[in-house]
């Protein structure tokens, strides 16, 4: 990676089937540093999806985080599926060819360099073997047999080159496949490149801008966020959010949090259960919500100790 860069705001937040995703590591670190949102890394290995210890891009934002970023003007929502389809359809043939050629060219250069090195190495190796066999002539047919076998094996590694060289001249009209072709590969990049995935800039979006739905927990989320807390999804701890007094990499969380409506009724048993839940993990259980005047009030419950 190069030196950290600050992405331009507003940055796109991609909406895929009701998930709000960030694909760009630069944006992700910016969001964490500047907007105090850690989100959740969700990328795993396609073949081993149960591997969930070390996750990577993309980062999924909570709906509250996405909404707050939009409200702050720091981000805007892009319908990813729509944009992707349009990007593919609207791409000019010329651009497409140019892109493919450039990619091909870059790949080829890398591979040719690789093949050249391998051949150099092989040359050295074969030379060494030849010298050895020259010493032991009395091996007779056996020795030459082995020598020939080696050469054949060496050539099959670069199948195309040997085939093309031995082929009759009829095929030479087609550009001769080189050794490089056999080793060419096309990795799938982790991040889509602008050639076919250029998100519309906010001022180009004609329709009303997309806006994440305001959840019941949002006022409380925003209230705590403004007081410097990092919030993360709390399902694993039996609540709505976990509230950390700073970056979750540096702090343990202080609260297990539930957002409520001002007049939403809650069972007394749930108050007791919430108090136990928090105290059991050395935290406090916090509930809160917006009163009639738009002010958010919070209450913390802990076991009384007797």
């Amino acid at each position: 990676m190069t030196t950290p860069t600050i992405p331009q705001e507003p940055f796109p937040i991609y909406l895929v089937s009701s998930s709000y995703l960030l694909y760009d590591a630069t944006v992700i670190s910016h969001v964490r540093r500047t907007h105090r949102m850690s989100g959740c890394l969700t990328g795993t290995l396609p073949q081993i999806p149960q591997q969930n210890i070390f996750l990577g891009l993309p980062l999924e934002l909570m709906i509250e985080e996405a909404l707050l970023l939009v409200d702050k003007g720091a981000g805007y929502i892009v319908d990813d599926v729509h944009v992707h389809e349009h990007g593919l359809r609207d791409m000019l043939e010329v651009d497409k060819h140019q892109f493919l050629e450039e990619r091909e060219e870059g790949q080829r250069r890398g591979v040719e360099e690789y093949v050249r090195k391998v051949q150099e190495k092989r040359g050295v190796f074969v030379q060494g073997r030849g010298n050895d066999e020259g010493g032991g002539v009395d091996g007779g047919g056996q020795g030459t047999e082995g020598g020939r076998g080696d050469v054949a094996e060496g050539e099959t590694v670069f199948e195309n080159s040997s085939v093309s060289n031995s082929r009759p001249a009829a095929t030479t009209a087609v550009p001769a496949p080189t050794a490089a072709n056999a080793v060419m590969y096309y990795p799938t990049p982790a991040i889509s490149h602008p050639i076919y995935h250029r998100p519309p800039v906010p001022w180009d979006i004609r329709t009303a801008p997309l806006r994440p739905q305001r959840t019941q927990g949002y006022p409380l989320y925003k209230h705590l966020h403004e007081r410097g807390y990092f919030l993360s999804p709390g399902l694993r701890f039996g609540c709505q959010y976990m509230a950390y007094p700073g970056d979750p990499l540096r702090f343990h969380s202080h609260f297990v949090v539930n957002g409520l409506g001002w007049d939403e009724e809650i069972e007394m048993r749930d108050v007791v259960g919430g108090g136990r839940l928090g105290t059991g993990v050395k935290k406090a259980w916090m509930i809160g919500g917006e009163d009639g005047t738009g002010e958010v009030r919070t209450f913390c419950v802990e076991w009384g100790g007797f």
């Binding site: 509230a243 609260f255 007394m268 007791v272 009030r297 419950v301 009384g304």
Partner: peptide, 27 residues
Amino acid sequence: LMMGVVSDDSTVVYYVVGEGAVKPKQN
């Protein structure tokens, strides 16, 4: 304040409720 929660079998349990963001005792 403390909530003294009374159940039908007359068990009473006590839970401390604080207003605001009250840091937990043990953290």
